[in-house]
Design a protein around this nucleic acid. Structure first.
Lengths: 137, 137
DNA sequence: CTTGAATCTGTAGTCGCTACAGATTGTACC
DNA sequence: GGTACAATCTGTAGCGACTACAGATTCAAG
């Protein structure tokens, strides 16, 4: 028999990483995770490296990387060499994206705050929020 | 015949509002927009009020309101009275949400910027971005 | 009356999961 | 060995908010 003490079932992986079982299977289906070994009955068995790979994926997702970006990062990691520049490029793109989103949301925040503030006065004939929403750009 | 000069086809509405035709039909399907009049042949005909309603919806979407929130806002507008408080509540919820998202993104920005900066030094043995992604939370 | 643009309905795809249904397997206890 | 019950299996459908077709029809201009 193989060394059973070093493999874990999908439920244990889920508890350890906080990732739902369905999502682990989903990552396998879209080939972010390799197909794991199986018991005679067909249950998945994960080794340490596979759990680490999942953790890597989850951290990337927390940072807002899209699945395809993670795939690219993993390819670079798997490839091994000369990849630091490429990794940096992907990360910088992501940073630009985040900064753009922040700027967009700041504008929204301003508009929404103005609308709420106009309501606050409580002495308007018609609802200022609705008026604002009807206003032309 | 009805007054044809005051109705427009869906293509004209699309050009006027910048909203794709498919999306206009989609808003009708999910009942954000009323079913418009039709020509004998079945083409949709929109009147001024309907175009304004669409503009209202589009402005709400720009501000990040979810479809269900817009539905609630439209119900309040249609209802007519005593709704300013409710409108304000929906808008405030939205504002809280936007502020939370900004805070989240700021954290991301920090992490990503650190990672990129570490890359910039160019004197590390292994890729610092990959290391950061492998690090435990 | 013909041509070509516009519009019609309906369905399937996008992203990143999530939620089932219904069948099978693994494991602990007696 | 038997039995209960948890864990896991596969496969499919759904979410939000559209978007992208296919294939049929209708409209407007000349």
């Amino acid at each position: 028999m193989a060394d059973a003490s070093r493999v874990v079932a999908i439920g244990a992986v889920s508890r350890r990483t906080g990732c739902p079982i369905e999502t682990i299977r989903y990552y396998e289906k879209i080939a972010l995770l390799p197909k794991p070994a199986r018991t005679a009955g067909g249950h998945r068995l994960y080794r340490k490296g596979e759990v680490e790979r999942l953790s890597f994926i989850l951290r990337c997702r927390q940072l807002g990387f899209a699945i395809d970006e993670i795939r690219a990062l993993l390819d670079l990691v798997d490839g091994g060499e000369n990849s630091c520049t490429a990794v940096k490029a992907i990360t910088e793109e992501r940073l630009v994206d985040v900064r753009r989103k922040i700027a967009d949301l700041r504008k929204l925040e301003g508009t929404l705050a103005d609308m709420v503030a106009a309501c606050g006065t409580g002495q308007v004939p018609d609802c200022p929020v609705i008026e604002a929403l009807h206003a032309k750009p």
